[in-house]
Structures are given as structure tokens and as C-alpha cells.
């Protein structure tokens, strides 16, 4: 009886804690949404009061009709898609090597690759820009995608190598005895068993590339190629611009990120190797 009560209390405590964290997580989004329904002046007077809250969707309508936010989505989507595609292709095969195809010196190479993450991107942007301009790549999406590959491949390799290391060697050896080649191993063992890491890679780098401001701001100097975050950042400085209009755009811009997260997180399921290890 007593144990039952303590259990219930513990469960209630856990539930309330998780609820509090969830509400605090939801709040910034709610704050943006709530203020996107106001007029500029009412927001400036008090961003935290319901004063001036109108239920008009004017900011959203203008965002779509005048600001053409949906075509900006297309630009960012292009960059995000190809960044993730190449991160997955290059990252999976490299992580396979780092985890399972050891050769002398590979650990040093691994550390070298990882250590390229340790320097802020601002530091390297000038030499990079000049490199791209020699290749006529400035103002091309590919300059942004290449920069992202340089920034995020080491991170993704760190993640996927950690995951692939957990795949039992016996499985690979057994497959080899059955005559499985490099690609068979990738396709039938590494990728299926690495699904959680691959899914996390997709989620992380979709959201990071979707929200990034710095790289596209420097490399894409063409109105028609701007990414959604760069375009939205242009709307506001500390005391000028229209914050409520920008909030409407920011709220719309979270939707693709939330969808990607909601879809892919479902693939993180329990006991992924339960059937195959034994």
C-alpha cells in the first residue's frame, strides 16, 4: 500500500517535471506565435501582454503573398537536401572504415578529421570565400553546401562511427564467409543497424542547415538565392523593422523543421538489433 503510494507520488512528480520542461520548451514558439498576431506598436509597448492581440492573419498572409516565403523555403530546402545527401553518402562509408576497416594510421586520420570541428567558422570564411571565387562558386548553392559538408561531415562521422562500432564483428565476419562484398555489408548490415545514427544525422543537419544564417549570408549575394533565415534576418534590427512580421515568418519557418523531426524521430525505436545479434 505504502509502496504503491510512493510509486504514484514518484510518477506524478516525474510527470510534472517533464510537463514543466515541455512547457518551457514550447514557450519561445508560443511567444513568437502570440506576438505575430499583434501589430508592431502593440508589440513594442509590451511583448508579454495580450494588449493589441488581434486574431487577424495579416502578417501570415503578407509573408506568403508579398514576402514569398514559400519560394525561400525552396532555396533552403535545396541546400539542406543536398547537404544531408552528401553527408550520408560520404559519412556512412567513412564511418564504416573508421569503425570496421582499420588500417595503420587510421586513428590519427580520425583525430585529424575530428579536430577540424574545433575552429569557429568565422575564422575560415575569408580563405574559403577566395577559394570559391577562384572556382566561380560564389553565389552558387554549391558553395554553401560544400561549406556545410566541411563543417558537418566530421560531426556526422563522429556520430556514425560511434554507432557502427557497436555492430558486432561476428556479423560482418559471418557475412564475409557467405561471400558478401563491401556494398553487401553496407547495405545489409551497416545501414540497417545504423538507422538510429542515420536518422539523428538527418534530423540534426536538416535543422542546423535550415536555421543557419552566417554561411549563406556571406556566400549568396543574389536576391533570388537567399535562404529563408537570411531573408527573415533582414527584417529586423534592434529598434527598426517590424518584429511581429518577422515572428510570423519565423513561426512559418519552424514548420518544416518540426515536420522533419516528427517524422524521423519515429525511427528511433527500441531493440533495433534484438533479432540480429543472437
Amino acid at each position: 500500500m505504502v509502496k504503491n503510494l510512493t510509486n504514484r507520488l514518484t510518477n506524478a512528480f516525474i510527470f510534472l517535471t517533464l510537463l514543466a520542461i515541455s512547457i518551457s520548451n514550447l514557450y519561445p514558439l508560443f511567444f513568437m506565435f502570440f506576438n505575430s498576431l499583434k501589430h508592431r506598436t502593440d508589440y513594442l509597448i509590451d511583448p508579454f501582454s495580450i494588449r493589441g492581440l488581434s486574431l487577424t492573419w495579416e502578417n501570415y498572409v503578407t509573408m506568403i503573398s508579398q514576402f514569398k516565403i514559400l519560394s525561400l523555403f525552396g532555396n533552403t530546402l535545396f541546400i539542406s537536401f543536398f547537404t544531408i545527401l552528401f553527408i550520408l553518402i560520404f559519412g556512412i562509408i567513412a564511418s564504416f572504415a573508421f569503425a570496421k576497416l582499420k588500417f595503420p594510421g587510421i586513428d590519427l586520420i580520425y583525430l585529424l578529421i575530428i579536430s577540424t570541428m574545433f575552429i569557429p567558422v568565422q575564422v575560415t570564411i575569408i580563405p574559403l570565400y577566395i577559394f570559391y571565387s577562384k572556382l566561380q562558386l560564389v553565389n552558387s548553392y554549391w558553395s554553401v553546401i560544400l561549406t556545410y559538408l566541411g563543417m558537418f561531415l566530421p560531426e556526422a562521422i563522429l556520430l556514425m562511427t560511434a554507432s557502427f562500432r557497436g555492430i558486432p564483428d561476428e556479423l560482418l565476419e559471418a557475412a564475409e564467409l557467405d561471400g558478401a562484398g563491401y556494398f553487401d555489408k553496407l547495405r545489409y548490415i551497416i545501414v540497417p543497424m545504423g538507422v538510429p545514427a542515420i536518422v539523428l544525422t538527418i534530423i540534426f543537419y536538416f535543422i542546423v542547415t535550415w536555421n543557419d544564417l552566417f554561411t549563406p549570408m556571406v556566400l549568396l549575394q543574389d536576391m533570388s538565392k537567399r535562404t529563408v533565415m537570411v531573408a527573415l534576418a533582414s527584417l529586423l534590427s534592434r529598434y527598426s523593422g517590424d518584429p511581429t512580421f518577422q515572428f510570423a515568418g519565423l513561426v512559418l519557418a519552424t514548420i518544416p523543421a518540426i515536420i522533419i523531426y516528427a517524422i524521423f524521430q519515429q525511427y528511433i525505436i527500441k531493440g533495433i538489433s534484438a533479432g540480429s545479434t543472437k
Binding site: 549570408m217 556571406v218 549575394q221 534576418a233
Partner: peptide, 15 residues
């Protein structure tokens, strides 16, 4: 249009 006035100085320098 440049999204960030401060960054515009750096981008201009680099370009």
C-alpha cells in the same frame, strides 16, 4: 539587401 549591417562590412572586405 544585406541582412546584417555589421556582417556586411566583413562580406564587403572579403569580396
Amino acid at each position: 539587401p544585406q541582412a546584417d549591417a555589421l556582417q556586411a562590412h566583413q562580406t564587403f572586405r572579403t569580396a
